[in-house]
Design a protein around this nucleic acid. Structure first.
Lengths: 212, 212, 212, 212
DNA sequence: TATGAATGAGACTTCATTCAT
DNA sequence: AATGAATGAAGTCTCATTCAT
């Protein structure tokens, strides 16, 4: 017999196809109202093939949860790369605001929300989600700390608490923007900026900003 | 003739029992991993009885979504009742922070999160959740507006945007506190207060507070 | 305790109401797609009351099968009452043709057909239907025999066989007229008359008739 | 790639097995007292397999209704093939009489009767049954018309009406022969022949026949 | 006599997963 | 590596019937 007919890259590509198909299905109908039959139909493969790439249906959910982490991580990386922490935060906010308003990411958001619910009952998923949350929080806290070190952020702010609040805020906004078709991203962005400014910037700066 | 065998109150009580049982089950295993058999076992009634009080299993989910609305409404009512809008907001934050930390409300939060996911695919649930969101936002926005009228909040704040952000923030915190066993409510409460203060209070006040 | 609060007549009236309600329901949805809940709703009584008047749901079906017999019997009685057997048969045909075309009897026909199917699996119903069939056949055979005795029908006709064929014919026409909205009763009546004439009347008569 | 694991013929055979099993079950207990579990047990397949070949239980009923049509059509085809219309009718009568008396066809007749009842509430079935009825009527009417053209049948007979009456007659006889174990097919056949003769054959012929 | 809430067996159907080809 | 027919456990919901009031 000939072994390893397919390269790893080919196999990975196949896996991705199935994963993308699953994402679309899950977004449309939710995890539990999506059958493996739906997924394979959407992916254009057979039932048997599905099980060559995933051990169970829950496996797919977990794999998608990882994906989500990766995209978040990407955003963070970009933000952290900025040398100016204020600009870094701005990049972070804008990026996130854009994905909220961008219909192209709608599927991912819809599936992410379902993942949050799933995390309640699936230990593996929960661990991934929590770990991801902590990681993002650390990134943001570090940005804030750098801003404090450089004297541009108030020294008495709590990087940890603020970071956590910001992640929570983003998650909540994801919910709202996904439920409602329209989403006033400008108003929201302004509010967040105000909040962050009021909390992080020294009074003098804050005042100046307001007076603009 | 028409001697009502059971009063409406009795029937409502029965319904509540089933609803509470369902809440416990859903909290434990999630909507979709809870069978009607689980619910009736927990409630101590027969399968048939369940369908005497609910048309379908999804009906229970919707009913629970309503419940959630009611409890939120209660909180708001109390907050709005305060003559001092600043105190009103404080009541609101404390209340919410307490329920987050209170294990007694854990079931409700766990089910609420699942409801958010469910809202993505069930129009009826989505409408309820969105309507509830708007209602809460209005309440908070009104509190803020009253604070602005009395000159205690900055006039240039956007009540609507801030209210929306606060609701989002609360939702996100609900996620985090439910996933992680422990939740540093003190740090979180302080952060939120800071955020709100920095955003709402006039600079002079904000500064004073900070200096305390 | 006071016994016999209701007279038999009152009880019978109540029973009839339920029976009529059941007939309407069965006609609409068939025996098996009609629930006892449907029947009591249509009759305006409670579930419990239903079981005061009927032992089981099948009981209702049997009772309706009897009803059918009675109405058929009525028709026969009238036909038999005619002193002239030819006129008697004519009455019989016309009566039957009229009920086929009459929408008022539609429910009864629809339920009768279901009874035929039910007779296949329910011994009690089958016995009733067969007994009824035989009785009607006897009546018709007797009419024919009387016609033969008076010399108006051909002596070599087989009353038994013809009677049986006529009953079969009527049943088949019931099917067709019930399935199809419209029913050309005139053409059918003429055909039956021709058939009977050709079979029963002496050649001379038959010819004369034709020549008219 | 797309190596058809099973040929269409194999799949059709499997479908037939289930269909035949269903026929036996329906014949025994009726549509509504036959469970899908009964059918799959009789067919020797699993529940899941059943739903691989039929969308619902009602689907099976419809499929059987079609089968019935086909067998009837077969009979007609044979009758129509006869060059002599009188002989054609005879073939038709004999065929039908034989299946009535033949216990091998008992199941089909029992199920056919149930289909008649089912046609009252299921539009799809009704359409099939009515269409089938019309088709058979047309065939018979054509036979009669051919007989008239060749001068062997009376010119004043109404092919349409007679055909319709004959179909009705056959249906009614199916009922009777199915309810009662025994069925005097000889007497019945003779009666039908007499009826048809009396109606269709010219007087001279009719008389001659009688005198035989 | 009348009510209608309660019951629970059982019906239909779905679906994740397997395995022979 | 790929297929897709087969499986059967399990889920949701219905409904004839009972019984305490």
């Amino acid at each position: 017999m000939n072994m390893a007919k397919f390269t790893d890259a080919q196999k990975e590509a196949r896996r991705r196809e199935i994963l993308d198909a699953a994402l679309r299905c899950f977004s449309r109908n939710g995890f539990h109202n999506t059958t493996t039959a739906d997924i394979v139909r959407e992916a254009g493969v057979s039932q048997g093939t599905f099980y060559l790439y995933f051990k169970t249906k829950d496996d797919v959910i977990a794999a998608l949860a990882d994906d989500e982490s990766q995209s978040d991580a990407l955003i963070n990386a970009m933000a952290a790369a900025e040398s100016d922490p204020v600009a870094g935060l701005t990049v972070l906010f804008n990026r996130h605001g854009q994905t909220l308003a961008n219909p192209q990411h709608a599927d991912e958001h819809r599936v992410a929300i379902q993942g949050w619910a799933e995390a309640l009952r699936d230990e593996a998923i929960r661990k991934r989600v929590v770990a991801n949350t902590l990681r993002v929080e650390q990134e943001i806290a570090r940005l804030i700390a750098r801003g404090q070190e450089s004297g541009r952020f108030r020294a008495d702010a709590e990087p940890q608490g603020i970071a956590r609040a910001l992640v929570a805020l983003f998650r909540g906004l994801t919910l709202q923007s996904t439920w409602e078709g329209a989403f006033d991203s400008k108003l929201t962005a302004k509010t967040i900026e105000d909040m962050v400014r009021g909390t992080l910037l020294p009074v003098a700066n804050a005042t100046k900003t307001r007076e603009k």
